[in-house]
Design a protein around this nucleic acid. Sequence first.
DNA 1: CCCGATTGCTTCAAACCTAAAGCATTGGGA
DNA 2: TCCCAATGCTTTAGGTTTGAAGCAATCGGG
Lengths: 153, 153
Amino acid sequence: MTGARTYDEGNVRLWLRLLGTTRVIEKRLQRGMADKHSTTLPRFDVLAALDRAGEPLAMGALSRALLVSNGNVTGIVRTLERDGHVTLEPRASDRRVSMVSLTAQGAAHFADLAAAHHGWVDTMLSGLAPETRASLTADLGELKAVLSERPSA
Amino acid sequence: MTGARTYDEGNVRLWLRLLGTTRVIEKRLQRGMADKHSTTLPRFDVLAALDRAGEPLAMGALSRALLVSNGNVTGIVRTLERDGHVTLEPRASDRRVSMVSLTAQGAAHFADLAAAHHGWVDTMLSGLAPETRASLTADLGELKAVLSERPSA
DNA sequence: CCCGATTGCTTCAAACCTAAAGCATTGGGA
DNA sequence: TCCCAATGCTTTAGGTTTGAAGCAATCGGG
């Protein structure tokens, strides 16, 4: 006998598969960013958030959008600023707030990165059967909803 | 007109969902490990690999099992050794190799962590419909196979 | 108006992570 | 036997990440 379980083994199996596949894809993207464009995924994520917003964002808005800590964004934005991809300026109406803007150079850089990123993702996932891709996308949407309903585990 | 696409938008959408759900779960587990057990996921991963193997593992075997760099394992194992959870010893037949063993304390510690970890995962995923869980698990298996077929993007 | 709480961000210590360089050991060919 | 390439690990520099402490600016009650 294996004794009474206090948890369902199937859920752990699902989690390990989710984690495993995500890590493999993420490592390949990370490697591509480093090898072909001398940058990193976190920097790409910040540029993507700014591009998506279409307007300057506060540091706090960035950290909420990316699900990372405030201090983390400070460091990443600092290197992006050093490399000329973004500029920082206090908001006139509240000087505590630092607004981050994409420069023309940053926007052009991001366009390159996004094209490469999308191409890599497409290459990696294109071997998947269309119906598998559809059901994965739908099921992950359901999972996301389940996770939202129970915010704190 | 949007012009000819060189990639399929649906693949990127799937990737973003995969990444988003994985990050949410991972952050909660990370938080739980820190708050309830004063440890981290990478440390847990190393202990899990040793427990799973059931015998001492070389540093290189650990880094391959965890998909992380060699130097990374060096650092994590160093802190685990400092805290008395593992011991390090050169292999007699080849002194270049460092064998990592779980101590009794490390094994007991891991048992606690594993129970908590499985409980958290079970709680987070238990809201999922059984058939959704089954199809997710199966589809992720297919995705994993697809990724294995094309090792380098 | 004033002062204490709040808010937005930065700094800090500790840990994680990688690629590249370095060190020690091993093994194979001349 | 000797040497040198290959192997296993560690070190290093640079970047990512967090939580907590700290600083500056703002806001609100008295």
